[in-house]
Design a protein around this nucleic acid. Sequence first.
DNA 1: TCAATTCGATAATGCGCATTATTTGCAGGG
DNA 2: CCCTGCAAATAATGCGCATTATCGAATTGA
Lengths: 364, 364
Amino acid sequence: MPRHRITQSDVAAMAGVSQATVSFVLNGNTPAGVRIGEETRQRVLDAIRITGYTANPLAQRLAGGLTQILGVFTYEATFPRAGRDFYGPFLVGIEHAAERLGVDLLLFTSAPATGGRRQLTRDGWQRLGVADGCLLLGQHEDRGELQHLLDTNYPFVFIGKRGSDGGRLPYVGADYVGATTRQVDRLVALGHRHLGYVGVRGTDQPTLDRVEGYRTALKARGLTPSFVESDDVATAAGEILARSLTAVVVAPENHPEELADELERRGARVPGDVSVLLLGQPHHPRRGGRRWSGFSVPREEMGVRALYLLSRLVADDGGRRDRETRRASAVPDAELHQLLNCPDVEGATAAPAPSSAGPDPASA
Amino acid sequence: MPRHRITQSDVAAMAGVSQATVSFVLNGNTPAGVRIGEETRQRVLDAIRITGYTANPLAQRLAGGLTQILGVFTYEATFPRAGRDFYGPFLVGIEHAAERLGVDLLLFTSAPATGGRRQLTRDGWQRLGVADGCLLLGQHEDRGELQHLLDTNYPFVFIGKRGSDGGRLPYVGADYVGATTRQVDRLVALGHRHLGYVGVRGTDQPTLDRVEGYRTALKARGLTPSFVESDDVATAAGEILARSLTAVVVAPENHPEELADELERRGARVPGDVSVLLLGQPHHPRRGGRRWSGFSVPREEMGVRALYLLSRLVADDGGRRDRETRRASAVPDAELHQLLNCPDVEGATAAPAPSSAGPDPASA
DNA sequence: TCAATTCGATAATGCGCATTATTTGCAGGG
DNA sequence: CCCTGCAAATAATGCGCATTATCGAATTGA
């Protein structure tokens, strides 16, 4: 038994055939009029079994094949040292899917993080090539980078909705719009008429979607939107009370925990006087902290779906060494853009409106 | 600008030199009497800068170089779908280290999990080759597999102490023996004289070490060990009370939460009547659960150290395409086997012994 | 002036595999 | 008897790079 890794040549020698023959047998297909006799085929298969040969993924890839490696690129540190582990849940799903698909995962941790934000530089881009395709996580969006990806026809899938580029970017996202709309509806059903939205108006997709959901839901109910945009918790709490809001929706990144504390410090009970619905999972769950009402983002499921989609794209596009031939994708458009439902969470921060005569007496 | 990835040949063409020259310039070294003129060198460097060329890691590796990819193999699912995320903290550290080292991480999720336990089969073993070296996490230990690793001189590092193989296996572990000893000392200092060890006697290293620490600490104090080995929480609680133990140490996998609940259900307050020290972090931290006293395993730090060590081993052994030449390792033995300290945790489950006259009146 | 160095750089090779082009052996047809 | 046709397999090539062997020109020494 050779000390070095067993190669096709080793197998070939044992079976008394050429390396090429082994390759053909392995891949099953015989592209150009090449035929392998059944007897020879068996001999090769036996040799493979005996030697325990397995293909070297690198060599395969270099020769135009697939590595069975899928990449994961995060624009922020994958496992943040301090603070909430944002990507963890996604990775749980991703790994689960990877296991079922029989692929390995490559985490692009080498990308230089400039100012806490990873760049998909030309350098990093080259490294992507090791993987057959890549998952992209995070908010950053560099037009140039994306264009490059599209140009080279490299398979990739975003985790998180992507509105830009005319919807040509494949993604698996969460339905923030719908979920936020439902939260407003829950509050209205509880008798609330003065509902606020707390949080700075970022331009990231989740925030845009939350705002849109909030706005349209209020409009549909004939209510007036009320945005509390202060970044400062104290100011925000003051605003809420000053405007006599009986309920607010707030995104996890806008310090809901501190906000609720501040409200109570000012004598407003949560949810007794002010209901607070959380538009996603809390970032920094405290020990013995509040059980938030609101909705949860199915991150794990998103991870699973995203990797499956990526796998399909790879199978569809990959394999062909000639990346130039961009044939019409066989993956239906509906699969290319998936929006997953965010299930409601029954917590302890939502209650009927204080001075209301019960649930929804006569909505306009 | 070519659509395909830029190769050394592209750079060479632009600089008006040969591909080999580019390679030499890139690697800096000129092994065998090869010299590159300063002017030419600059021309090549300029071409590299202009084209944004970066080496293809696969090709490098195939040609005997390094991929700058380090592998992570877990014997169990890396991100368990249900239950506590055991590997998470390690990965936080590993990723952090990877970032600093400028390497990518390859998660071997493709290994078939037979009965919830991943195998490092010949197949999987081949796939390791993509990475320059590999981190091994988990309890499983297959002599054959390990021998293979050693034989091929493939760089690897265990996370978690490894006692077998005459200490030839490089690892970064936690000092369970010392930490457990300290816990016993804490309890003794609180006046406890009847200290039990709760938990089934597994053969895994952490358990062996905990037991050893417990045993030697008691012996040093002239006290009698008392093992409560029942797997059943109710039985264990009964035993503790029947033996009049005033304190127990318990490993996280032995359901400390349920045990404490059961004790209190039987009228024994924790820690009023029975102190319970946890030998590690809780597996399933509950919302509003107990704040355990005991110690914590520095998983993150272990991850960091392990990857650094692996990186050193790779640098030391790697690079040389001739894996046969096993030269004396330049990595000192002290670094090859690291035991990290487990800091004590001040929680709320340790109290002075009930009928004791205070802290440690006259220890034998 | 011509061989002996030294300098500067290139051609050639192999890593392990997929794939294309080509060869070989052998039956049947004219 | 030679040529065509087909089955069966092999030789050859390239992927992108590291490395070894090799080569040409400029410089030196006597």
